[in-house]
Amino acid sequence: MNKFQAWIMAARPRTLPLALASIGMGAFLAASADLFSWQVLLLSALTTIFLQVLSNLANDYGDSIHGADSADREGPTRAVQAGYISPKAMKQAMIIFGILSFASGLWLLLAALPGNQLLLFLFLLLGIAAIFAAITYTSGSKPYGYAGLGDLSVLLFFGIVGVLGSYYLHAQQLSWDHLLPALSCGLFSTAVLNVNNIRDIRTDEMAGKRSIPVRLGRSRAVTYHWMLLFSGILCSVCYVIVNFESWWQFLFVISLPLLIKNGRAVQHKKTSAALDPYLKQMALTTLLYVLTFGIGQLLV
């Protein structure tokens, strides 16, 4: 494997559709209210991509340093653990993508919130918190992912903050009921992480990484997974009931068979190799859910 291939592997492009899901949901909600901005969408997407790549690089570095990506790892190869990229080079790349994330986020806020210094400052703090969360998930002396707090972080940043924050930058307003599709995005994104953590349960336990599946055990982690999937659909159904105007708003149920397929795979497939493809499947299903949910709102 050459250096370019190693960096692409470390950036993990297959995670990018999931990262864009919350941005897409916020944009669809804004478009359904005739408050959509292409500039906000493109800059939000750029910032999100930089943040996701930063998170992936930090995860590669942190898990290798802390031992979760050891020679016993059963999931995909990590660049630092395999020796393709040095820890020093990975730290330098993390700094670069941290700067890119900050610069892109600042550009977004200056474009979306001109003249509103207080809101710009508050959103800037949220952006810094997102950068900090991306880096410290598995990196640093006390990575919160090793304490089992990754699920909460994903629910917050891939759901509530991602959807409501991006919607506000389009619309300059918020509505309480938008919390429901925001929670759906966050719950499905958390389900992606849960598939990852169930796959890695043995090596995570060996490394002292106390993820939710390590804490619960595989059987209860599967139950937790079904709860995430069911709760995500339930939040969406509740949103449509509250805002019902047309049956097109239930278009998102197209994603239901794929969610059930993912839940059954997590329940029945016991090896890491068999379970790994369902990480990508759940990420793409989340993106499909966002597209069908959003289109359904636009067809009203």
Rank of each mutant, 00 (worst) to 15 (best):
S211I: 10
A130Q: 04
A27I: 05
P114S: 13
I198Q: 01
L149P: 00
A133W: 06
L18K: 02
L109W: 06
V253P: 04
T47W: 00
L180M: 13
R264C: 10
S64Y: 10
N59Y: 05
G67S: 10
M1Q: 14
A207Y: 11
P76G: 12
I201S: 02
L119E: 12
L119N: 12
G67W: 08
G75M: 07
F50K: 03
S55Y: 08
Q249I: 03
H170W: 06
K88C: 07
A82Q: 11
S231P: 09
S64W: 05
G294E: 03
I85S: 01
K280M: 09
W176D: 04
M206A: 15
L109K: 07
M90Q: 09
T285Y: 07
Q5W: 13
H225K: 10
L251E: 07
E205C: 06
T286W: 04
A30G: 08
T203P: 04
S236F: 09
S104V: 11
M90S: 12
L42V: 14
F121C: 13
S175M: 13
L174M: 15
W176G: 00
S139Q: 14
V163T: 12
L54N: 01
S211C: 13
A27Q: 07
N196H: 04
L298G: 06
Y278V: 11
R78G: 04
A112T: 06
L259W: 10
K280A: 13
A129S: 09
T285A: 12
C235K: 00
A147P: 00
L20T: 09
L54H: 11
W226K: 01
K269W: 13
Q249N: 14
A11P: 08
R12F: 04
P213G: 01
Y289G: 04
Q5H: 14
V161W: 06
S141E: 11
R215D: 01
S101F: 03
